[in-house]
């Protein structure tokens, strides 16, 4: 079984935000919620890098560990998904998540922040695959159709890679060897307790 991961090659990312837009469009993500975002560090300074970030689908996921109603579940491919029918919108998963992935429809916590929303790796939720109800709650389920996440599929510079962890790591390693530089696999140490050594 594959272990699905994301890897953003920050030396290729041009901060075009196409992944962000593609994600919002594919899943009809509501206003104010971004399942994926591009963060530019050292903006305008030496060492500037842009990194496209969403839920990393962590190993031993912190969000799942702190959820007071235990609404997360893991898939055989290593994805971390959640059941919106069980979520109470307490906001704890955001405090635990190292990547700021969980998003909420409401700003205040007075009476709950609404059902948490986050990147599903285009794998939907616990509902029947590709059903209407799954689509309205979680967006489309490309994984069930045998496709990879749209953000990575349509990345113009192929900075964002999605797929089996070992395969995308080897693609990244080869790139780094060819071009002679690479700032590393962002978030991997934190999410998977491993790094891509080149």
């Amino acid at each position: 079984m594959a272990r699905l991961k994301f890897l953003c090659d920050a030396d290729r990312c041009i901060e075009c935000n196409a992944c962000v837009t593609a994600c919002k469009n594919e899943h009809e993500v509501p206003w104010g919620i971004n399942r994926r975002r591009v963060v530019t560090i050292n903006d305008g300074k030496p060492g500037e890098r842009s990194i496209s970030m969403a839920c990393m689908h962590c190993t031993d996921a912190p969000c799942a560990a702190v959820c007071p109603v235990a609404c997360f579940y893991g898939t055989a491919d290593g994805l971390v998904l959640h059941d919106k029918d069980l979520c109470i919108g307490c906001g704890y998963c955001f405090y635990a998540c190292p990547f700021g992935a969980p998003q909420y429809p409401r700003v205040g916590n007075f009476g709950g922040r609404g059902k948490m929303d986050k990147c599903t790796y285009c794998a939907g939720g616990p509902q029947q695959d590709n059903s209407r109800v799954e689509y309205t709650q979680y967006g489309s389920n490309r994984i069930a159709e045998g496709k990879l996440p749209l953000c990575a599929e349509m990345c113009s510079t192929k900075a964002l890679l999605a797929g089996d962890g070992e395969i995308i790591a080897s693609i990244y390693k080869e790139r780094v060897q060819r071009r002679g530089f690479g700032s590393g696999a962002w978030g991997w140490r934190t999410a998977y307790k491993e790094t891509v050594t080149t």
């Binding site: 591009v38 530019t40 955001f94 990547f99 700021g100 962002w186």
Partner: peptide, 17 residues
Amino acid sequence: EGRTTLPDTAAAILIQP
């Protein structure tokens, strides 16, 4: 931490271990 084009200021934090 970095900079994003999103109005949500919490989004500018890339990783918080």
